[in-house]
Simulated scan of single mutants.
Amino acid sequence: MTLTGLYVPLITPFDRSGGVALDALEALAVQVLADGARGLVALGTTAEPSSLDPAEQRAVLRVVTRVCRDRHAPLVVGANTPEALRALADHPEVVAALTTVPSFVRPGEEGALAHLTRLAADSPVPLVVYDIPYRTGQYLSAATLRRLADVPGVAGLKYAPGGINADTVDLFADLPSDLAVLGGDDAFISPLLALGAHGGILASAHVATARFVRLIEAWHAGDVAEARALGGRLSLLSAALFTEPNPSVVKAVLHAQGRIPTPDVRLPLLPAHPDSASAALTAVERLPATRRG
């Protein structure tokens, strides 16, 4: 399995009673696929999974699974424990699990590698390892990420190191042929694609799906002029969408566009300030027109 292109990590919209707005979720899933996304991510961090009870999580997965099945689109599901991974065996639409490096305990690179190796061995689906050290507290070097590529059952990497650093350059200079790298730092997706990333898992792509699809296509096709121009504007959009904890601003923009019934998030998140939503909407308006390749 090769993971390429754009995957949208879906938010969980809430209705005015505070429940999950399943109809709005389905409409979002259908729309981003219609706009060119390769696949979807359900119950990733953008979905606020820790604030959903088990019944809500099952309902979300049921809706997104149905959309992917009907449209023959690959589905990745956030799952970080043996129990959560085993539950994916009942969903043939799921091509991989998005699994974070263990957080808070800071087990060291060897401990993180051993943990992920054990999860991959017991998982019914391949893992896409989510490397996001500014959230987990555990940094993984380029050498360790290459070792991950040799772990049976690890198919890819959601790479979100917080920018472009020496290990980023090192990794892409000698990228394992069987490791799909999907950028996860939205504001840096264009330079990551220029270095050789296979695609992205991007919350910002809720808002401008077709343009993020085109950005990936342009870099892969070698259309540097278009990729640079589009990438710069999309980076500004992503920066605006992440001025507050994700997905607060994304939800505010989607609500302003009439695509979800409320902009609500659940504690410990707070709703975005109106100024943040306004700035992000302005960034959307300033995006250049684009063509499909």
Rank of each mutant, 00 (worst) to 15 (best):
Q138I: 07
S141N: 00
A142V: 00
A142G: 04
A142H: 06
A143L: 01
T144F: 05
L145Q: 04
R146I: 08
L148N: 06
D150L: 08
V151G: 04
V154H: 00
K158T: 07
Y159R: 07
G162R: 08
G162D: 04
G162P: 09
G163S: 03
G163T: 05
I164K: 07
N165A: 06
N165M: 08
N165H: 12
A166M: 12
A166C: 09
A166F: 07
D167A: 03
D167N: 12
V169Y: 14
D170S: 08
L171E: 02
L171M: 09
F172A: 12
F172S: 15
L175E: 13
L175S: 08
L175A: 06
P176H: 03
S177Y: 07
S177V: 15
A180R: 13
A180K: 01
A180H: 06
V181L: 01
L182I: 02
L182C: 04
G183W: 02
G183K: 15
D185Q: 08
D185P: 01
D185R: 03
D186W: 02
A187R: 08
A187L: 02
F188H: 12
F188W: 15
I189Y: 01
S190V: 11
S190Y: 12
P191W: 04
L192F: 00
L193S: 03
A194E: 15
L195T: 12
H198P: 04
G199A: 10
G199R: 10
I201Q: 00
L202I: 09
L202G: 05
L202A: 06
S204Q: 14
S204R: 09
S204I: 05
H206E: 00
H206T: 00
H206L: 05
V207S: 06
A208S: 06
T209H: 15
A210T: 09
R211E: 10
R211D: 12
F212I: 13
F212S: 11
E217H: 13
E217Q: 14
E217S: 15
A218T: 14
W219N: 01
H220C: 04
G222N: 15
D223C: 02
V224W: 09
A225W: 11
A225I: 10
A225P: 11
A227K: 02
A229G: 08
L230D: 10
L230Q: 05
L230W: 13
G231P: 09
R233K: 10
L236W: 04
L237F: 10
L237S: 13
